[in-house]
Design a protein around this nucleic acid. Structure first.
Lengths: 196, 196
DNA sequence: CGCTCGTTTGAGAGGACTCAAGGTAGGTGG
DNA sequence: CCACCTACCTTGAGTCCTCTCAAACGAGCG
């Protein structure tokens, strides 16, 4: 899904090792690089006045992040942080633009990436206006189910806190709601592990 | 901002007059056309289980809408409806792709459009997680202020219901909150008209 | 063992929602 | 010019649900 590494290096890409929980760029700062993850995991998030955290997106190996503000030269709307030790390649802004200009196939590539991003965000927004905690969590869980076709319940690899941050709810609300959903046999909880 | 009309017509674009309040495409249906507004106004929205309406975006003359699902061949996440009598040009999917393929300048065009769309949606999401009505409304109002640089209060051309649908709140909440904001001199209300 | 991080539970408060009923303004037709 | 209509705005009372704060339990790890 990402751009070929050799290609990025040719265009001045630099590979960096970044430890867990390090900030890559901050909300409101201006973009200067194109970032692509070689290994690890990066989260883009916001924190509101009441220290409530909201995760805009999570990205893993072979994915790029933070391109939209780069393309339109606007400040980052959120902060990027590694959630695992990660290896990331970054390409300076101007080099990146030159590369995209010279390689038309990349343009179609980014159109698809960005279109997907818009699509996912539309789905997420739909969910966020519901202030019914049950619906929000079920919708969130459904966004995983997509790939897993079977009726078997699947282990959800997120902590309650992460689910809270992704749905815009509070941890306690997530926990209490999950309990209700368990009573309705919609989810299953065994040893604190969540299945859906 | 939109694509040249002659160009769209060359590629099989068809111009249609569409009266107010007519649905252009429905949530969950598959995209078959590229749409661009010649004149009028189109709103993309969702309705949740409790008939609460959420406006994903409003588009006016010279803007296109509904491209993200078209590019990635996914069902529309929301419904498009005209909010004014409108004139719209639509280009069949395959023609549209051929056109974009043949005209590289269009690719950069769509990259920018889509990047902007992602950016705006990120900003909007930030706002939606706050369940503080006051903050939601102020942030919403600020998204206008951007262009108007002056300190002068500007007339807001949205009905309370529209503000409600855009912020994910209820009309009554919007009204009561605006009143509070007036007491704090943050907004001004004269003859039911809202200034900010 | 003692630390840290994540999970639970309880009690209480606040604020947005719901429902129901009027009020207001602008446009239309007689 | 007025009665009427429709769309939008406003207000009140009461409920419900999420959030808040506080405390404690559980698991994994040096």
């Amino acid at each position: 899904m990402g751009i070929d590494l050799d290609c990025l290096i040719t265009w001045g890409g630099v590979i960096k090792k970044i430890p867990k929980k390090e900030i890559i760029f901050r909300e409101d700062s201006m973009p200067s690089y194109y970032y692509q993850i070689i290994s690890g995991k990066v989260s883009l998030f916001n924190i509101d006045d009441h220290y409530k955290e909201f995760i805009q997106g999570v990205f893993i190996e072979n994915e790029s992040f933070g391109e939209p503000p780069l393309f339109i030269n606007e400040p980052y709307p959120s902060t990027a942080i590694t959630v695992k030790d990660s290896i990331i390649i970054k390409v300076p802004k101007q080099n990146f633009f030159d590369m995209v200009q010279k390689m038309p196939s990349l343009q179609m590539h980014f159109i698809k990436i960005l279109a997907t991003r818009v699509y996912l965000k539309s789905m997420a927004s739909k969910n966020l206006i519901t202030n019914d905690a049950e619906t929000r969590i079920i919708n969130f869980l459904n966004s995983f189910k997509k790939t897993g076709k079977s009726h078997e319940k699947v282990l959800i690899l997120h902590t309650r806190q992460e689910i809270a941050n992704l749905t815009g709810l509070r941890v306690e609300t997530v926990i209490r709601t999950l309990k209700k959903l368990q009573e309705q046999s919609i989810v299953q909880i065994t040893d604190h592990k969540l299945y859906y």
